[in-house]
Write a protein that binds this DNA or RNA. Structure first.
Lengths: 226, 226
DNA sequence: GATATAGTTTGGTTATGGTCGAAGTATGAA
DNA sequence: TTCATACTTCGACCATAACCAAACTATATC
């Protein structure tokens, strides 16, 4: 009874097409303004504003005011994971998607999951870290090994700084396309940052899909073999 | 855009209070008839029938006719996992649940997650299996070791039979109360079966909560130390 | 056969909530 | 100060869908 009420509350928030589009857009990980989200959702500004107020009040999204803009983001990675999960079920159930088009194909290969890399490339990355002993799995939860700590620190990622924060450094997230785990957490986020900073990928604008450039792909694979 | 539509579709199904209550009831794992679900949801039979038609058409629930009854169940464990996930977010976000009441306490400790054991007891069980080397984690996915195969086979669970089926034998499921993994998959389901068959637990009717009897608790802990 | 039980279908009512235009607030720029 | 941009609030409108009563179908029991 009580459980049903909780379910319904979140469900109805996600259940409105306009809000669902907004949330899907925010899955891209970049903060978006109210106007951008209105455009994304295909509704007027007043409507968008009211939707965002609801999402924000419920705690699904965070907002930070900057000048006359309001930047919205997903509240945290749990929300991102939940949305990813729902999309996974939708994809399984969905109206007989026979052939995943070329666009879906690219998305399967690499995409942004809130703030980290997902898709086959993301799964491959975590696999590689585990194989090389940089990350170890304990009770199903990933932990950075000592070797991993120094490896990432040497790569210019401030892992020790991360360890002092609240957010877990390593976390796994179930990849709906590959049905395997990929790396989330602050380390996952930092790695996506670097991949983007190094110009290995192009973001398709308005989409979660990311495409590796030929050069970027080579570099990335080298990085995994390191 | 397309992703948003998928989200909204599932969201709106889960977003109606009546349907949410039905789904929550089905999380208990037992098949329920349309009338039982109507009662659970607090709506009339015609209303329930229409809701169930929608859920069924969308593929979230399965129905099997038996005489003049129709027994509904969640379509598969992915749906269960999704609902569990949504509840987890709701619990985190929820209206400042300060003190989890005694009832919630029991639910934290042990409950049914669609067809397997969840809560602290479920987490403890998986921990124990891993510690004893019966289950090993590879790439974040649990796999039965050889020792595990013979152990469970000796306990009277037909693991080898399970391996031939489509459904994975071992799967982890993130426990929203403990934020740790517990064991799902066909082995998880079989273990819950045995726990119930041995009379170690009492089901609270109309609830997912299960309570270990004093004796059952002792036996269960022995089983984990085995 | 007649009767009861389980569930669906139909039709009509109601209300929740999404929508936008217009007016209002807040911040920044000229 | 004045104008422009970014967003919110208000008010009114409208569509979707949740709901039930009554009628209907199908299965079981007597």
């Amino acid at each position: 009874m009580k459980a049903g009420t909780d379910l319904a509350q979140i469900g109805s928030l996600v259940g409105d097409p306009a809000r669902a589009n907004m949330l899907a857009a925010l899955m891209g990980g970049t903060a978006l303004t109210a106007s951008e989200l209105a455009l994304e959702a295909g509704v007027g500004l007043p409507t968008a504003s009211s939707h965002l107020a609801k999402l924000s009040e419920a705690g699904l999204v965070d907002v930070v005011r900057q000048g006359r803009h309001r930047y919205y983001t997903l509240a945290d990675h749990h929300v991102g994971a939940m949305l990813e999960n729902i999309m996974g079920v939708a994809a399984k159930l969905g109206p007989t998607r026979v052939l995943p088009g070329p666009r879906d194909q690219a998305m399967r290969e690499a995409r942004v999951c809130y703030d980290h890399l997902a898709g086959e490339m993301g799964v491959a990355m975590l696999d590689s870290f585990i194989e090389r002993g940089l990350i170890r799995l304990e009770d199903g939860l990933p932990r950075l090994s000592e070797a991993g700590t120094s490896f990432f620190q040497n790569s210019g990622i401030d892992v020790n700084g991360m360890k002092r924060k609240r957010r877990p450094v390593c976390r796994t997230c179930l990849d709906w396309s590959a049905r395997r785990a990929h790396l989330a957490g602050s380390l996952g986020a930092a790695l996506l940052d670097r991949i983007q900073a190094k110009g290995w990928v192009r973001r398709e604008k308005g989409s979660r899909t990311i495409r590796f450039t030929p050069m970027g792909r080579r570099e990335f694979e080298l990085f995994l073999r390191d």
